[in-house]
Design a protein around this nucleic acid. Sequence first.
DNA 1: TATTGTTATACTCTATAACTATA
DNA 2: TATAGTTATAGAGTATAACAATA
Lengths: 140, 140
Amino acid sequence: MKQQDRRRLAGELRSVCMRISRRARFENVATIAPHQFSVLAKLDSGSSTPRTLAELECVSAPSMTRTLTGLQERGALTRATDPQDRRRVVVTITDAGRRMLREGRRSRDEWMFERIRSLSDEECAVLREAQRILEGVVAR
Amino acid sequence: MKQQDRRRLAGELRSVCMRISRRARFENVATIAPHQFSVLAKLDSGSSTPRTLAELECVSAPSMTRTLTGLQERGALTRATDPQDRRRVVVTITDAGRRMLREGRRSRDEWMFERIRSLSDEECAVLREAQRILEGVVAR
DNA sequence: TATTGTTATACTCTATAACTATA
DNA sequence: TATAGTTATAGAGTATAACAATA
């Protein structure tokens, strides 16, 4: 495939991903905001600290403090000072947080599922393969 | 493909589209914000009014007023009262606005292109086909 | 009286700078 | 003196309510 064609493919793929992303976000009834959702997803695979979370999410430390406070007020996580280094705070997801995460996922996926279900098996196979390739692309 | 598998595919596709969307947005050097970019893209295919643009963009009328004012201050568009119905304002993109739009597109697409260029021809073919299917999905 | 657009005001999420506690 | 986290404050972008101009 020529470089020119790849450039066009890149542009069109980027565009369609953005539109899907936008609609899956807008057209759902999520009770949890995107930035909160993203933090809970990180915490679901293990406890962390505010600083680490801020770096992973590409936001400032004060922004993360605020996000964590909001989630804590809703009972989605706990904050505890690390006994080893008492400057540090260990953030841990709660069962309620896991429920919010699950509900958020379900809500977002519903939009996509409604549009996938009417496709042919062949089309789904292409999308499955594309998803695998894109996982590699985004991992870089 | 079983319903269960489709549901999982939907979730994973939605997720990877969001991550791509997020990174293509964050990791670019765009001089134009996403909501401004989106409005200019609409105007590029023809003049419009604040109200229509607000509805297309799913934002309130005052928000659109603000966005338009910002773009106008940067010389990206003009506002003129409609002589037929003097309550209405006709918004038109300028040449400077078209240049911003082009530059914004180039900047966003660059991230994706850098990751597409090292794929095999076969992988690109799958992505091309997937893009076509996803265009249909998002059109609904 | 209804419609189009803007202004007034407030809320949320973001950032940088200043501060506190601990190492 | 350096680091982790929070608080203070300000700047975007958003919304609803109130307003002016026009139909």
